[in-house]
Protein backbone atom coordinates (compact mmCIF):
# COMPACT_ATOMS: atom_id res chain seq x y z
CA UNK A 1 0.00 0.00 0.00
CA UNK A 2 1.11 3.52 -0.62
CA UNK A 3 -0.20 7.00 0.06
CA UNK A 4 0.21 9.63 -2.64
CA UNK A 5 -0.40 13.38 -2.62
CA UNK A 6 -0.40 14.43 -6.28
CA UNK A 7 -0.04 18.13 -6.99
CA UNK A 8 -1.66 18.13 -10.46
CA UNK A 9 -4.83 16.60 -11.87
CA UNK A 10 -2.85 14.73 -14.50
CA UNK A 11 -0.63 13.19 -11.89
CA UNK A 12 -3.67 12.16 -9.89
CA UNK A 13 -5.36 10.65 -12.93
CA UNK A 14 -2.25 8.66 -13.75
CA UNK A 15 -2.03 7.34 -10.19
CA UNK A 16 -5.69 6.37 -10.38
CA UNK A 17 -4.97 4.27 -13.48
CA UNK A 18 -3.03 1.90 -11.24
CA UNK A 19 -4.63 -1.26 -9.89
CA UNK A 20 -6.68 -0.91 -6.72
CA UNK A 21 -6.20 2.83 -6.51
CA UNK A 22 -8.74 4.85 -4.54
CA UNK A 23 -9.39 8.54 -4.15
CA UNK A 24 -9.08 9.99 -0.67
CA UNK A 25 -10.92 13.27 -0.11
CA UNK A 26 -12.67 13.37 3.29
CA UNK A 27 -11.97 9.70 3.89
CA UNK A 28 -15.16 9.15 5.88
CA UNK A 29 -16.29 6.35 3.58
CA UNK A 30 -12.91 5.08 2.40
CA UNK A 31 -11.44 4.53 5.85
CA UNK A 32 -14.57 2.77 7.06
CA UNK A 33 -14.41 0.42 4.09
CA UNK A 34 -10.73 -0.21 4.69
CA UNK A 35 -11.40 -0.97 8.35
CA UNK A 36 -14.10 -3.49 7.50
CA UNK A 37 -11.90 -5.15 4.89
CA UNK A 38 -14.36 -4.40 2.07
CA UNK A 39 -11.63 -2.37 0.38
CA UNK A 40 -7.90 -2.97 0.41
CA UNK A 41 -6.48 -0.29 -1.87
CA UNK A 42 -2.91 -0.53 -3.12
CA UNK A 43 -2.69 3.19 -3.74
CA UNK A 44 -4.49 5.91 -1.85
CA UNK A 45 -4.63 9.10 -3.87
CA UNK A 46 -5.16 12.09 -1.58
CA UNK A 47 -6.63 14.79 -3.84
CA UNK A 48 -6.71 17.49 -1.18
CA UNK A 49 -3.42 18.97 -2.37
CA UNK A 50 -4.63 19.65 -5.91
CA UNK A 51 -5.14 23.34 -6.72
CA UNK A 52 -8.67 24.62 -6.21
CA UNK A 53 -10.08 21.48 -4.69
CA UNK A 54 -10.65 23.07 -1.31
CA UNK A 55 -12.32 26.21 -2.68
CA UNK A 56 -15.87 27.41 -3.17
CA UNK A 57 -15.86 29.94 -6.05
CA UNK A 58 -18.53 31.99 -7.81
CA UNK A 59 -18.97 31.12 -11.48
CA UNK A 60 -21.66 32.34 -13.89
CA UNK A 61 -23.79 33.41 -10.95
CA UNK A 62 -23.57 29.92 -9.49
CA UNK A 63 -21.09 28.11 -7.26
CA UNK A 64 -18.24 25.75 -8.05
CA UNK A 65 -17.51 23.59 -5.05
CA UNK A 66 -14.17 21.86 -4.93
CA UNK A 67 -14.23 18.11 -4.42
CA UNK A 68 -12.29 18.38 -1.16
CA UNK A 69 -14.52 21.03 0.44
CA UNK A 70 -15.94 19.62 3.66
CA UNK A 71 -19.58 19.70 4.66
CA UNK A 72 -18.74 22.04 7.52
CA UNK A 73 -17.10 24.48 5.10
CA UNK A 74 -20.19 24.45 2.89
CA UNK A 75 -22.37 25.12 5.90
CA UNK A 76 -20.25 28.13 6.84
CA UNK A 77 -20.50 29.69 3.35
CA UNK A 78 -23.28 32.24 3.80
CA UNK A 79 -23.95 32.94 0.12
CA UNK A 80 -24.03 29.27 -0.77
CA UNK A 81 -26.44 28.52 2.05
CA UNK A 82 -28.66 31.40 0.98
CA UNK A 83 -28.77 30.22 -2.63
CA UNK A 84 -28.96 26.44 -2.16
CA UNK A 85 -30.16 25.74 1.38
CA UNK A 86 -31.49 22.31 0.41
CA UNK A 87 -28.23 21.16 -1.14
CA UNK A 88 -26.28 22.34 1.88
CA UNK A 89 -28.67 20.80 4.40
CA UNK A 90 -28.43 17.51 2.55
CA UNK A 91 -24.65 17.54 2.75
CA UNK A 92 -24.76 18.72 6.35
CA UNK A 93 -26.88 15.72 7.31
CA UNK A 94 -24.04 13.33 6.50
CA UNK A 95 -22.72 11.86 9.74
CA UNK A 96 -21.73 13.68 12.90
CA UNK A 97 -20.10 17.03 13.52
CA UNK A 98 -16.80 15.15 13.32
CA UNK A 99 -17.70 13.64 9.97
CA UNK A 100 -18.79 17.07 8.73
CA UNK A 101 -15.26 18.26 9.37
CA UNK A 102 -14.05 15.91 6.65
CA UNK A 103 -16.84 14.53 4.47
CA UNK A 104 -17.29 16.08 1.03
CA UNK A 105 -20.24 16.44 -1.31
CA UNK A 106 -18.24 14.90 -4.15
CA UNK A 107 -17.18 11.95 -2.03
CA UNK A 108 -20.76 11.38 -0.96
CA UNK A 109 -21.68 11.27 -4.65
CA UNK A 110 -18.83 9.01 -5.75
CA UNK A 111 -19.33 6.54 -2.91
CA UNK A 112 -22.39 5.47 -4.87
CA UNK A 113 -24.66 4.86 -1.92
CA UNK A 114 -28.35 4.91 -2.85
CA UNK A 115 -28.99 6.50 0.54
CA UNK A 116 -26.41 9.30 0.26
CA UNK A 117 -27.93 12.39 1.88
CA UNK A 118 -25.84 14.75 -0.23
CA UNK A 119 -27.10 13.55 -3.60
CA UNK A 120 -30.89 14.01 -4.06
CA UNK A 121 -30.75 17.78 -3.60
CA UNK A 122 -27.85 18.00 -6.06
CA UNK A 123 -29.94 16.12 -8.60
CA UNK A 124 -32.93 18.35 -7.95
CA UNK A 125 -30.63 21.35 -8.33
CA UNK A 126 -29.37 20.16 -11.71
CA UNK A 127 -25.82 20.10 -10.41
CA UNK A 128 -23.01 19.18 -12.79
CA UNK A 129 -19.85 17.38 -11.78
CA UNK A 130 -16.50 18.19 -13.40
CA UNK A 131 -14.33 15.17 -13.94
CA UNK A 132 -10.63 14.92 -14.59
CA UNK A 133 -9.16 11.83 -16.16
CA UNK A 134 -6.55 10.44 -18.45
CA UNK A 135 -8.46 11.86 -21.39
CA UNK A 136 -8.83 15.31 -19.89
CA UNK A 137 -11.76 17.20 -18.43
CA UNK A 138 -15.48 16.57 -18.89
CA UNK A 139 -18.67 17.80 -17.27
CA UNK A 140 -21.38 15.29 -16.35
CA UNK A 141 -24.74 15.92 -14.68
CA UNK A 142 -24.63 14.65 -11.14
CA UNK A 143 -27.72 12.53 -11.84
CA UNK A 144 -25.67 10.45 -14.27
CA UNK A 145 -22.81 9.66 -11.88
CA UNK A 146 -24.28 6.94 -9.64
CA UNK A 147 -25.30 3.81 -11.53
CA UNK A 148 -26.08 1.39 -8.70
CA UNK A 149 -25.14 0.63 -5.11
CA UNK A 150 -21.41 1.38 -4.84
CA UNK A 151 -21.14 1.94 -8.59
CA UNK A 152 -20.57 5.08 -10.68
CA UNK A 153 -20.20 5.97 -14.33
CA UNK A 154 -16.67 7.27 -13.72
CA UNK A 155 -14.13 5.72 -16.06
CA UNK A 156 -10.89 4.24 -14.90
CA UNK A 157 -8.57 7.02 -13.81
CA UNK A 158 -11.37 9.58 -13.58
CA UNK A 159 -12.26 11.53 -10.49
CA UNK A 160 -14.49 14.45 -9.63
CA UNK A 161 -12.67 17.73 -9.07
CA UNK A 162 -15.67 19.97 -8.45
CA UNK A 163 -19.42 20.22 -8.53
CA UNK A 164 -21.20 23.16 -10.08
CA UNK A 165 -24.47 24.50 -8.73
CA UNK A 166 -26.11 26.85 -11.22
CA UNK A 167 -27.25 30.41 -10.65
CA UNK A 168 -30.56 30.88 -8.88
CA UNK A 169 -33.41 32.77 -10.46
CA UNK A 170 -35.53 34.96 -8.23
CA UNK A 171 -38.30 33.24 -6.27
CA UNK A 172 -36.53 29.90 -6.01
CA UNK A 173 -35.95 27.59 -3.10
CA UNK A 174 -34.91 24.04 -2.36
CA UNK A 175 -35.11 21.68 0.58
CA UNK A 176 -34.03 18.18 1.55
CA UNK A 177 -35.47 15.93 4.24
CA UNK A 178 -34.55 12.41 5.14
CA UNK A 179 -35.98 9.88 7.55
CA UNK A 180 -33.80 8.11 10.08
CA UNK A 181 -34.81 6.16 13.18
CA UNK A 182 -32.77 8.37 15.49
CA UNK A 183 -32.27 12.13 15.22
CA UNK A 184 -28.68 11.78 14.00
CA UNK A 185 -25.98 9.28 13.04
CA UNK A 186 -28.10 7.00 10.84
CA UNK A 187 -28.15 6.22 7.16
CA UNK A 188 -31.27 7.58 5.45
CA UNK A 189 -34.16 5.15 5.25
CA UNK A 190 -35.75 7.47 2.72
CA UNK A 191 -34.88 10.96 1.49
CA UNK A 192 -36.54 13.57 -0.65
CA UNK A 193 -35.31 16.81 -2.21
CA UNK A 194 -37.48 19.42 -3.84
CA UNK A 195 -36.26 22.38 -5.89
CA UNK A 196 -38.83 24.98 -6.88
CA UNK A 197 -38.87 28.14 -8.98
CA UNK A 198 -41.99 30.26 -8.69
CA UNK A 199 -43.46 32.44 -11.35
CA UNK A 200 -44.31 36.08 -10.80
CA UNK A 201 -47.84 35.01 -9.83
CA UNK A 202 -46.49 32.85 -7.02
CA UNK A 203 -47.33 29.53 -8.62
CA UNK A 204 -44.72 26.87 -9.19
CA UNK A 205 -43.08 27.46 -12.56
CA UNK A 206 -40.46 24.75 -12.35
CA UNK A 207 -40.25 21.85 -9.94
CA UNK A 208 -37.77 19.04 -9.56
CA UNK A 209 -38.24 16.26 -7.06
CA UNK A 210 -35.47 13.75 -6.33
CA UNK A 211 -35.46 10.79 -3.96
CA UNK A 212 -32.86 8.87 -2.04
CA UNK A 213 -32.76 5.38 -0.48
CA UNK A 214 -35.81 4.12 -2.39
CA UNK A 215 -34.09 2.77 -5.52
CA UNK A 216 -30.63 1.51 -6.54
CA UNK A 217 -29.57 5.13 -7.02
CA UNK A 218 -30.81 8.52 -5.99
CA UNK A 219 -33.13 9.63 -8.77
CA UNK A 220 -35.29 12.41 -10.06
CA UNK A 221 -39.02 11.78 -10.38
CA UNK A 222 -40.15 14.05 -13.23
CA UNK A 223 -43.82 13.12 -12.76
CA UNK A 224 -43.62 14.38 -9.20
CA UNK A 225 -42.17 17.68 -10.30
CA UNK A 226 -44.80 17.98 -13.01
CA UNK A 227 -47.55 17.44 -10.45
CA UNK A 228 -46.46 20.55 -8.59
CA UNK A 229 -46.01 22.78 -11.62
CA UNK A 230 -48.68 25.41 -11.91
CA UNK A 231 -49.83 24.95 -8.34
CA UNK A 232 -49.43 26.80 -5.10
CA UNK A 233 -49.05 23.42 -3.42
CA UNK A 234 -52.74 23.01 -2.92
CA UNK A 235 -53.83 19.63 -1.58
CA UNK A 236 -54.62 18.00 -4.94
CA UNK A 237 -51.22 18.97 -6.34
CA UNK A 238 -49.47 17.66 -3.25
CA UNK A 239 -51.45 14.44 -3.38
CA UNK A 240 -50.61 13.94 -7.03
CA UNK A 241 -46.96 14.60 -6.28
CA UNK A 242 -46.98 12.15 -3.38
CA UNK A 243 -48.63 9.51 -5.56
CA UNK A 244 -45.99 10.05 -8.24
CA UNK A 245 -43.23 9.75 -5.66
CA UNK A 246 -44.61 6.53 -4.23
CA UNK A 247 -45.15 5.09 -7.70
CA UNK A 248 -41.50 5.73 -8.51
CA UNK A 249 -40.14 4.02 -5.37
CA UNK A 250 -38.46 0.68 -5.87
CA UNK A 251 -36.85 0.16 -2.47
CA UNK A 252 -35.52 -2.90 -0.71
CA UNK A 253 -36.41 -4.54 2.59
CA UNK A 254 -33.44 -4.47 4.90
CA UNK A 255 -32.29 -3.82 8.45
CA UNK A 256 -33.08 -0.14 8.03
CA UNK A 257 -36.62 -0.29 6.73
CA UNK A 258 -39.26 -2.18 4.82
CA UNK A 259 -40.46 -1.61 1.28
CA UNK A 260 -43.80 -0.34 2.55
CA UNK A 261 -42.23 1.97 5.07
CA UNK A 262 -39.74 3.50 2.67
CA UNK A 263 -42.39 4.00 0.01
CA UNK A 264 -44.85 5.61 2.38
CA UNK A 265 -42.31 7.82 4.08
CA UNK A 266 -40.74 9.00 0.80
CA UNK A 267 -44.12 10.54 0.00
CA UNK A 268 -44.38 12.18 3.40
CA UNK A 269 -40.89 13.63 3.11
CA UNK A 270 -41.47 14.92 -0.41
CA UNK A 271 -44.64 16.67 0.75
CA UNK A 272 -42.86 18.29 3.69
CA UNK A 273 -39.79 19.22 1.63
CA UNK A 274 -42.01 20.78 -1.03
CA UNK A 275 -43.63 23.01 1.57
CA UNK A 276 -40.26 24.10 2.93
CA UNK A 277 -38.90 24.79 -0.55
CA UNK A 278 -42.07 26.72 -1.42
CA UNK A 279 -41.71 28.89 1.67
CA UNK A 280 -38.04 29.47 0.93
CA UNK A 281 -38.95 30.58 -2.56
CA UNK A 282 -41.24 33.16 -0.99
CA UNK A 283 -44.37 31.25 -1.91
CA UNK A 284 -47.61 31.91 -0.10
CA UNK A 285 -50.27 29.26 0.02
Amino acid sequence: MRYATPKTAAEAASLLMEDAARVLAGGTDLLVQMKSGRLAPETIVDIKHLPGLRDITREDGGFRIGAAVSGAEMGEHTDLVAAWPGVVEGVNLIGSTQVQGRATMAGNLCNGSPAADGVPAQIAAGAVARLEGPEGTRDVPVAEIPTGPGKTSLKRGEFVTSIFLPARPERSGDAYLRFIPRTEMDIAVAGAAVNLVLGADGTVAEARVALGAVAPTAMEVPEAGAALTGSKLEDPAIEAMVDAVRAACKPIDDKRGTVEFRTHVAGVLAKRAARIAFARAGGQA
Binding site: Y3, G27, T28, L31, V32, S96, Q98, G101, M185
Partner: peptide
Protein backbone atom coordinates in the same frame (compact mmCIF):
# COMPACT_ATOMS: atom_id res chain seq x y z
CA UNK B 1 -15.77 3.71 11.95
CA UNK B 2 -16.67 7.26 12.98
CA UNK B 3 -19.83 6.24 14.80
CA UNK B 4 -18.87 6.86 18.45
CA UNK B 5 -16.64 9.95 18.61
CA UNK B 6 -14.36 8.58 21.35
CA UNK B 7 -11.38 9.35 19.11
CA UNK B 8 -12.32 13.00 18.55
CA UNK B 9 -9.42 15.39 17.97
CA UNK B 10 -9.04 18.63 16.10
CA UNK B 11 -7.16 18.72 12.81
CA UNK B 12 -6.20 22.26 11.80
CA UNK B 13 -8.86 23.48 14.21
CA UNK B 14 -11.60 21.31 12.74
CA UNK B 15 -13.27 18.62 14.87
CA UNK B 16 -12.71 15.17 13.33
CA UNK B 17 -12.70 11.49 14.21
CA UNK B 18 -9.05 10.55 14.27
CA UNK B 19 -10.04 7.00 13.28
CA UNK B 20 -11.20 8.44 9.94
CA UNK B 21 -7.99 10.34 9.21
CA UNK B 22 -4.85 8.75 7.86
CA UNK B 23 -1.80 9.44 9.96
CA UNK B 24 -0.01 10.50 6.80
CA UNK B 25 -2.56 13.27 6.29
Amino acid sequence: TGDCGACSVTLNGRLVCSCLVLAAE
